[in-house]
Each structure stands twice: as structure tokens, then as C-alpha cells.
Design a protein around this nucleic acid. Structure first.
Length: 586
RNA sequence: GGGCGUGUGGCCAAGCGGAUACGGCGAGCGGUUCCUAACCGCUAGAUCGCGGGUUCGAAUCCCGUCACGCCCGCCA
């Protein structure tokens, strides 16, 4: 309802200003601070003061007076507080919110007919997924969820870099070394198995004797050449390594869970000729030149000093050339394209956008969001060097610690719902993995994170379990009501919900669809996390002050139960956007 | 050297032109015969890196400066 109220207020305020002869270009609508009983406020009076020749409070009063309250949906009254004009909601706002949130899909916006592809993770298939890049699937999946909730038709893609030098090295190493030369794998899993070859290969290339390195480089070059020239046998050789490692990575990512609709291989754009076709079109641009045998495009009009090379002097394409073809393919199939990238790809992404623009694409349809890597207190994580904390280990540890917590709390548990062994497993998994996801998704991606076990796996306030607990409490109440034959769907007179805690909770529930909308629009899922925290705080105040099942009278009982059901749907879906499971008991 | 990002109480961190800077951890005090205490209440703790500027108003915008991170390849 908040979205409707917001546009109704904007229209009413705009009309009022126009009637008074004031400009309507800046309505100054904002959220009032905590403790103010209004749902929206405006600070226009400040800006109008000089034009009106009157102090802001006087202008505010004039504006407030001019707003047509009766004609504005959900607007109970307009008040002023010094220079601020405050807009207060009526009971219909709360009633309609309660009604809308009866739907367990509450928070989903109607389909808008637009398609979006969200590309995320896209880590090179060189070995197990590690925590340094774990922000990518977690943020990417949450962005995709938010965009999905906001009404878009979403596909989730993982772009597989299967055509680069790293994969050529990997393939050579895999075919060259024998298992007996390698250490034991950290896990019985294909990605852990194969990464040993990759590490060994890099080790040899770095410090092997000259002759070995020379032979290896020749083999690597031949693999790259084979890929470039469309040699089927080479694709098969590289493909075996890529697919095997990727399957292992996919399995780890699925634990988050982060699932993909499609793994799009880079070699696809070599094989279908689109990479060559892009290169030909680039050559025709007046910004393109050959320097030292290599084709390059001048992007200085976009602010890039150095020219972008798109064909090597030996005529082969580069990563960016293929990525251009990849993105034109996205434009052909989707209305919008979103990419989640590490901050080290910022320059490359900018150049990609510039080149796409030169090629005649509408680059407004392309958006990128960047995150900084998770580092260890002692420095960076590296697959090659083997210094990374693997995602699997983090999730295992999270689940173990969560299980300890569940078991520790079993003794002084009031609720006699006899958790079975499978419940303990379920809760440990939901809480453990939820805590990891929430910890990462709740922070602004641009801020750097230094990984520390205790901080990442804190189950207390401002964490996933804190929010999950609210959901479990809601479920507990609804379940118990059900046992007493009470369903949360009785017709409710909203005037029954009269305490500040009840009304505050409804107002927070009302904001949820707007939070989803904003998070999707700006690709900022952490805003949903911030919302869940505020939601949980508001719910806990309600829980403390307003008994539901033991309420004084039947009408209050039913009304509060309906409110709990609304809260339950809201928090469940907010967590769903974040990709965090909502336990029914914990 | 140039570009981009980050800098908010001891630690983490939201806010990113408007009303008293939202919270958490840690510290101190208190709360459970009552719908799950993974909870709640109270107390202490902040010149929002630093210096200028714009504005009626700046954590938020601009300039400068310092610190840290990332990037500046015919790598990906």
C-alpha cells in the first residue's frame, strides 16, 4: 500500500503546489524520522520560502492547508511540524495492507512484461569455489530474486570462460601429470580432484626447467590455436576438464543455494562465428586502427586513454572480443542485462560498454554492479596458490556451529514441540547457511570484507537467525491457533488493531513491496536485508506487547492472528528475496 | 603517475541533501510460573578521516589532502 500512498501523496502535493502557484518540479517527499507518526513527509517549504517571501513553517502551513485530503487515497490528514509537511495514513491503508498481506505471495509485483538476464559468479572453472568470490553468487542470486519479485521475467546465467589461457594450461596439465605426482585432494569431489592438476601445471610453468616449460608453452599455444580455429577435438579435450570442474562448482553453489538457468560458454561465440562477425564490424569503425599488427579501437571519446585491442597480431580474438559477441547475444534475447562483477573488472566492463555503444547497441539496457573481494586477515585468497577458504568448508563449519547452538538451546527450550533429529539437521542447515548468506548480502557490495570465522558465523542479533526467529515465532502462533481451530482468515475490522505496536507493524508490512521495487531498480539487495532487520525489531515489539492467542477478547485475537499471518508472509518473502530459508520452527 | 572505490563510537555497520546519525557486537544494569530468551528494556560510548567550499540546511554535493583497496597486458 505504501507505493499507492506515495504516488497519491505526490499527486495531491503537486496539485496543491500548482494551485498555490508554486513550482512542482521538486516535491521533497521523504521518509520521516523515527518517532514521527507520519508515513511520508515533505520538505518543500524550505525551497519555497524565498519565493514565497515567508519563513518555511508558514509556507508549510499554507501547503498543508491546500492539500485535498478527502480526494487522496489513504490520506487521513496532513499536519505540519515546523517547516515539515507530514502525511498520515488512514485506517483503510492499514486494512488494505492487512488484506494484501494475506496472500502468501505478498511483495511480488505484477509481471511487467520485461525480460532480464542476470549474469553472476562466472568464475573461471579452475577449482573449488572459494570465499573470496562468494559475494558474487550471493549478491547475484539476491539481485535476480529481487528483480524476479519486482515483476521481471528473469534468467540467471553463468558465463563460462572456457577459451582462455588458464583453461589451456589446465587441459595440458590434466593430460600431462599422473595422479601419483599429486597430493591427496582436500575432498572427494571432482573440482577438488582436478584443481591439483591446475596447481601442479602452474607450478611447473613458474619454476620448471627451461625445456619443460618450453614444451608446455607450445602445447598450451596449440590448444588455444585449436579453440580459435574451431577444432572439434580440442573442444572435446578442454570441454572434459571444464565440464568436470564446473559440475563440482555447481554442486557447491547449489548449497547456498544459487542455481542457474544456463551456463553460457565463451567458446559458443567462437564456434557460431559471432565473435568473428563482431571483429569485422569493429574493423569498419572509423575509431579502429591497426597498430603493430593488432587491430584496436580508440575509446578516448569515452574517457579511456588506452586503445582496446580486439584482434591480436596473429589474428586471434581476445576475451573482450568474445564478450562483445556474448553481450550482443544478450541484447537479442533480453530487454535488460545485469552483470555482477568483481571490482577488478570495472575498467574492462566500462570498455565493453563503450565498444558495444560504438557497435550501435543501446547500452542503457546493460547494467553492472561491482563488489570487492573477501580477503583473509593475512591477504588475498587464491585458487592457484591454494590459500583460499573454500565455500564448502565455510558452509560445513557454519552448519556445525549452528548445530551446536541448536543442541545447546534444547535444554532450556520452553516450547514442547520435541525436535526430532531431522529437525535439528534442518535447523542447523537453514541457520548456518542463512547466517553466511545474510552476513554477505546485508552489506554494501562496494565495501571490503575481511573474512573472520567468528564474525561471519555470529548467530545473534542483526543476523539471519535473528530474522528467521521472527518467522518461526509467527509460524508457532499460527500453528497453535490452528490447533485451537482458529484460522487467520476471519474478516477483521482494522479498528480492532489500535495499539501503537500493531499499527507500527502494519505500517512496516505495508512498505515491503516498495522495498522490493527499490532493491530491484537499483540492484541493491542489501536494502531488503536492512528492511528485514527493521521488520524484526518492529515485530518483536509487537510480540512483547500484544498477546495473540491469549488476547482479551475474540475480535482482538482474530485481528492479531491475521496480523501475524501477514507478518509471516512478509518476512518469509523478504528472506526469500535474500535467498535465506525461513524455518517454521527453530 | 592516472582512474575508480572505501574511510561513520573500541569493533562491525545503515543512512548518501533535510527533523534528535538506524542498529548490532563488545562494556555496565535489568527482565523468563505468560504465544520459542537465537528475545526484550535501560545506561555509557560519534568533532560521520582531515581542511576548505556550495547551500536556508552537508555524513550525504564540489575542491584539496591523507590512509587503505582495486585497476591501468596483443591475460582472463
Amino acid at each position: 500500500m505504501f507505493r499507492q500512498f506515495r504516488s497519491a501523496v505526490a499527486a495531491a502535493l503537486s496539485d496543491a503546489l500548482a494551485d498555490l502557484g508554486y513550482p512542482t518540479d521538486d516535491l521533497g517527499i521523504e521518509d520521516p524520522p523515527d518517532g514521527v507518526d507520519a508515513t511520508l513527509a515533505s520538505s518543500v517549504a524550505f525551497r519555497l520560502a524565498s519565493e514565497a517571501g515567508a519563513p518555511p513553517p508558514q509556507v508549510a502551513a499554507e501547503v498543508a492547508e491546500a492539500v485535498d485530503v478527502a480526494a487522496t487515497e489513504y490520506l487521513a490528514r496532513v499536519e505540519t511540524n515546523g517547516p515539515y509537511v507530514n502525511f498520515l495514513v488512514d485506517d483503510a491503508y492499514l486494512a488494505d495492507t492487512l488484506d494484501a498481506a494475506r496472500d502468501d505471495e505478498y511483495g511480488r509485483l505484477p509481471p511487467n512484461g520485461e525480460s532480464v538476464v542476470v549474469e553472476h559468479t562466472s568464475a573461471n572453472p579452475t577449482g573449488p569455489v572459494h570465499v573470496g568470490r562468494a559475494r558474487n553468487p550471493i549478491i547475484g542470486d539476491a539481485i535476480a530474486n529481487a528483480v524476479d519479485y519486482a515483476g521481471y521475467d528473469v534468467d540467471r546465467h553463468y558465463y563460462v570462460n572456457d577459451a582462455g589461457r588458464q583453461m589451456a594450461i589446465f587441459t595440458w596439465a590434466y593430460e600431462t601429470f599422473d595422479e601419483s605426482e599429486l597430493p591427496e585432494p582436500a575432498r572427494e569431489k571432482d573440482d577438488y580432484d582436478l584443481v591439483r592438476y591446475y596447481r601442479k601445471g602452474n607450478e611447473v610453468l613458474e619454476s620448471g626447467d627451461e625445456e619443460t616449460v618450453e614444451a608446455a608453452e607450445a602445447e598450451v599455444a596449440s590448444i588455444l590455436q585449436g579453440l580459435e580455429s574451431g577444432d572439434e577435438e580440442t573442444y572435446e579435450r578442454v570441454g572434459e576438464v571444464v565440464d568436470t570442474v564446473l559440475a563440482g562448482m555447481e554442486e557447491s553453489l547449489a548449497r547456498l543455494p544459487a542455481a542457474f538457468d544456463e551456463f553460457v560458454k565463451e567458446t559458443r561465440f567462437i564456434r557460431d562465428g559471432s565473435s568473428d562477425e563482431v571483429a569485422e564490424r569493429l574493423k569498419d569503425l572509423e575509431e579502429s586502427v591497426i597498430e603493430e599488427g593488432a587491430w584496436q579501437v580508440d575509446l578516448s571519446e569515452y574517457g579511456y586513454e588506452k586503445k582496446l585491442v580486439f584482434l591480436r597480431s596473429d589474428g586471434t580474438s581476445l576475451y573482450t572480443t568474445r564478450d562483445l559477441a556474448h553481450h550482443e547475444w544478450k541484447f537479442e534475447n533480453y530487454d535488460r542485462a545485469v552483470t555482477v562483477l568483481g571490482e577488478d573488472h570495472k575498467l574492462q566492463a566500462g570498455q565493453l560498454g563503450a565498444a558495444l555503444d560504438l557497435l550501435g547497441n543501446d547500452t542503457d539496457r546493460l547494467e553492472s554492479t561491482f563488489y570487492s573481494y573477501v580477503n583473509l586477515p593475512e591477504g588475498k585468497m587464491s585458487t592457484r596458490a591454494g590459500t583460499a577458504v573454500n565455500l564448502d568448508d565455510l558452509l560445513d563449519e557454519a552448519i556445525d556451529r549452528a548445530r551446536e547452538e541448536v543442541e545447546r538451546r534444547m535444554d532450556d527450550r520452553i516450547r514442547d514441540d520435541d525436535l526430532a533429529a531431522e529437525d535439528v539437521d534442518r535447523i542447523a542447515r537453514q541457520v548456518g547457511i542463512g547466517a553466511v548468506r545474510y552476513d554477505i548480502v546485508s552489506k554494501q557490495p562496494t565495501k571490503s570484507i575481511t573474512f573472520e570465522w567468528d564474525r561471519a558465523l555470529d548467530f545473534e542479533a542483526q543476523s539471519a537467525p535473528y530474522v528467521q526467529y521472527v518467522h518461526a515465532r509467527c509460524c508457532g502462533i499460527v500453528d497453535e491457533a490452528g490447533e485451537e481451530g482458529l484460522a487467520p482468515d476471519a474478516a477483521v475490522d482494522p479498528e480492532t488493531l489500535s495499539t501503537p505496536e500493531e499499527r507500527d507493524l502494519l505500517k512496516v508490512v505495508a512498505r515491503f513491496p516498495a522495498v522490493v521495487e527499490g532493491a530491484a531498480e537499483d540492484l541493491e539487495p542489501h536494502r531488503v536485508a536492512t528492511y528485514t532487520r527493521e521488520f524484526a525489531e518492529t515485530f518483536n515489539a509487537f510480540y512483547r506487547e500484544c498477546p495473540v492467542l491469549t488476547a482479551d477478547d475474540e475480535a482482538t485475537r482474530e485481528a492479531r492472528l491475521a496480523l501475524v499471518a501477514a507478518a509471516r508472509h512478509t518476512v518469509a518473502n523478504a528472506l526469500d528475496v535474500l535467498g535465506v530459508e525461513a524455518p517454521e520452527s527453530m
